[in-house]
């Protein structure tokens, strides 16, 4: 018997009591709330643990699961030692770099990927939604059909192409193949089809070019979709591992997932260091998404599910 057991038994007893007292609805509500709270605690615990692990001194890392008891708080137990080791400049074959470089690489790659996808997917979605041209139906089916291709099938042939193009160890190998995606085209087509055609025609009569109609009329009108789609693309690019791991060779070009995977081997006995790195790596997307969660969920569900 420990505190956890007592708490669980107490909860059970209260539920039984409510049922016996004929208040089944209240019992159901309490049970529902309790399950949600327990599940939330279980799901949040790795995050809490990670934050504490980042700021615990390596000497007490294993001793306490979360934080040391309050009486033992001091600069000896809670400090920035992990972060300091992590952020200290490191020598590599190409020169001395700090962890900030890898953060910058990740930010750059994810941002560039997002800009490319938003530009090209919205262009294609605009074309499918606004113009009628020969082969539109077939081409759109082909785009949708491409979602059926498992990305892993492409890895070996694209690797050979990248080598032949001389793109090995460059960001081209990551950014160009990922510059458009069927999902984004589909999202933009659906959204732009809802824009009244009269708006476009009116702009044409005023002498606007087709490019301006796309950029200054269609795009602003579907801004919620752009917001949602940006978040999805940014997160995917930020977290992507296989492509950068296969196509990049120089350490100083690596984004965070690849470099942290290296750090796990390098800091085998100081895992506070790579945990601190993981903490820094998941912080930016977490902040972004807690702030913009509505848009993000819209971006995920509007493709497959009608809300």
């Amino acid at each position: 018997m420990n505190l956890l057991h007592v708490a669980l038994l107490l909860l059970l007893a209260i539920l039984m009591g409510l049922v016996l007292a004929g208040r089944a609805t209240a019992a159901a509500n309490l049970a529902r709330r309790s399950v949600l709270i327990i599940v939330s605690c279980l799901i949040l615990s790795p995050f809490v643990w990670l934050v504490f692990a980042t700021f615990k001194d390596p000497s007490v890392l294993n001793e306490y699961v979360f934080l040391p008891p309050f009486a033992e708080w001091s600069a000896e137990t809670i400090n920035l030692s992990n972060l300091r080791t992590l952020l200290a400049p490191q020598e590599t074959v190409h020169g001395t770099y700090s962890f900030f470089l890898y953060i910058f690489n990740s930010v750059f790659l994810a941002t560039a990927q997002t800009l490319l996808q938003v530009t090209f997917c919205s262009m294609a979605g605009f074309a499918f939604a606004v113009y009628s041209f020969r082969g539109r139906q077939a081409l759109f089916l082909l785009v949708l059909g491409s979602m059926m291709i498992p990305p892993i099938l492409l890895l070996a042939p694209v690797y050979r192409m990248v080598v032949n193009f001389g793109w090995m160890d460059t960001y081209f190998a990551l950014l160009v193949p990922g510059a458009v995606g069927a999902y984004g085209i589909f999202l933009y087509r659906q959204a732009m089809m809802r824009v009244p055609k009269e708006l476009f025609d009116a702009a044409r009569i005023d002498g606007a070019s087709e490019l301006r109609i796309w950029y200054e009329i269609a795009l602003p009108l579907v801004r919620p979709i752009t917001g949602a789609f940006c978040l999805v693309v940014f997160l995917n690019a930020w977290n992507s591992f296989i492509a950068p791991n296969v196509f990049l060779q120089s350490t100083y070009k690596m984004p965070l997932p690849v470099i942290l995977q290296h750090f796990v081997g390098q800091y085998e006995n100081q895992y506070g260091v790579f945990l601190a790195g993981t903490f820094l790596a998941i912080l930016p997307p977490a902040c972004l998404f807690f702030y913009l969660q509505r848009e993000f969920i819209l971006g995920l569900t509007s493709g497959g599910v009608k809300e």
Partner: peptide, 25 residues
């Protein structure tokens, strides 16, 4: 049709890095 202008990047990228590699594989 101006549609082809807007579709050009998509056709180029998907053709080169999606459909061609499927065949190449």
């Amino acid at each position: 049709s101006p549609a082809w202008f807007f579709l050009l990047p998509t056709i180029a990228v998907m053709g080169t890095f999606l459909f061609y590699p499927v065949i190449l594989a």
